[in-house]
Nucleic acid binder design. Structure first.
Length: 379
DNA sequence: ACCCCTTTGAAGAGC
DNA sequence: GCTCTTCAAAGGGGT
């Protein structure tokens, strides 16, 4: 475990873990809302815990018993992760433990024996019937693209140090021209868009079988800078990362409309509203996206809140190496997002969602409208 | 139709 | 620098 350097493990935030980690009883209360009986739930959760512990490497099982080593990824630890990633780029990604990462993370159709093996990359790849595997789309990366970041180059792209230096870095990943983003050619297109699901010509998400990266399939998605002001490419094909500023299921609604209506009409409809560029997914979100289907299949649960609780527990049960892979992917996602949308800020989407319950409660107490205040602050 | 729930992490704002 | 808030995905459930 490369990241478990001596002297660094004890300060990895056991307290935070204990705080954030919910009690078993609490879990039961939550999941009781499902159709399961208490016993079924207990069995389910017991099996989940067992499964997590069994499937884990012995180090993970041991780690669970060592609350003091439970991870909390503070910035320091993230840096550590980056350090791990660097190591893993040269080690994990190329070592026998992670041969060809992320290419190992292929969906079942592409790996004859892709089931989880304790000795293999334990992060099982789940065939998502509803979407492209976020990691699968990393396949276009070459091994060179996943080579370790050059030691002389910073890898933490969260530091807004400008795109140019990132270009120097990401150009290795995405073959960016020296000029940076503005010179990204359509041919590069969306090979470098790992998270956003591949869309069928009709805009519907495709299973792996049809979304397996290929130059032709990805070339359908032009670069953001090739888009028109509404985020729609002149061809009428929507940008996968840009969604209309409506509520849930934006992709589906939007994509269907793209299929059904002439381009000009759609363009006209979309013009008045500024497209929404979503936040890049963090490590846990990437993990959830990958594992959700598996949990649903195993637990026959469909309620996302319950699924997410399970996924949260499993996330904690992962070894640091396993988590590191997702942190690394998330880091690359952020890099890519920053490349594609240099001027985008997370603040752009503030207020897009409706006010939350907590805010409403505050409102009832204070009479304030926090989100409106946000808007005032922002503007 | 819309919001809540539930999770973790990233980012922004405020102090 | 620390704390708090919001959003990212997901989809069943509630209003």
């Amino acid at each position: 475990m490369p990241q478990l350097s001596s002297g660094g493990g004890d300060d990895l935030g056991a307290n935070d873990e204990m705080i954030s980690f919910k009690d078993e009883g609490e879990q039961e209360e939550k999941i009781q809302e499902n159709a399961f009986t208490e016993r079924d739930l207990a069995d389910l959760k017991s099996s989940l815990v067992n499964e997590s512990e069994i499937n884990q490497s012995p180090s993970a099982a041991g780690r669970r018993g060592q609350q003091g080593e439970q991870r909390v990824f503070t910035d320091k630890h993230r840096e550590h992760h980056d350090g791990v990633s660097k190591q893993q780029d040269g080690g994990m990604y190329k070592s026998p433990a992670y041969p060809g990462y992320p290419f190992l993370m292929l969906p079942d159709p592409y790996l004859p024996n892709s089931s989880v093996s304790p000795s293999s990359n334990k992060v099982s790849v789940v065939q998502q019937s509803h979407g492209m595997h976020p990691l699968t789309s990393l396949l276009p990366y070459s091994n060179d693209h996943f080579s370790p970041s050059p030691p002389h180059l910073p890898t933490d792209m969260s530091q807004k140090t400008g795109v140019h230096r990132q270009s120097q870095d990401i150009s290795g990943y995405y073959s960016l021209p020296p000029g940076g983003v503005s010179q990204i050619t359509p041919s590069m297109s969306w090979q470098s868009q790992p998270v956003y699901p591949a869309l069928s010509p009709c805009g519907f998400r495709q299973p792996y079988s049809s979304s397996f990266p290929s130059a032709s399939s990805y070339s359908r998605f032009p670069h953001s800078l090739m888009l028109g002001p509404s985020g729609v490419h002149p061809t009428g094909i929507p940008h996968p990362a840009i969604v209309p500023p409506t509520g849930k299921q934006e992709h589906e609604h939007y994509d269907r409309s793209m299929c059904m209506k002439p381009q000009v009409e759609v363009k006209r409809e979309k013009e008045p509203k500024k497209p929404v560029i979503k936040k890049p997914l963090n490590a846990f979100m990437l993990y959830m996206k990958e594992m959700r289907a598996k949990v649903i299949a195993e637990c026959t649960l469909k309620e996302s809140a319950a699924i997410n609780q399970i996924l949260g527990r499993r996330w904690h049960a992962l070894t640091r190496e396993e988590q590191a892979k997702y942190y690394e992917l998330a880091r690359k996602e952020r890099q890519l997002h920053m490349q594609l949308y240099p001027t985008w800020s997370a603040r752009d989407n503030y207020g897009k969602k409706k006010r939350r319950k907590r805010e409403k409660q505050q409102d009832s107490n204070t009479g304030c409208l926090p989100e409106e205040n946000w808007g005032l602050k922002v503007l």
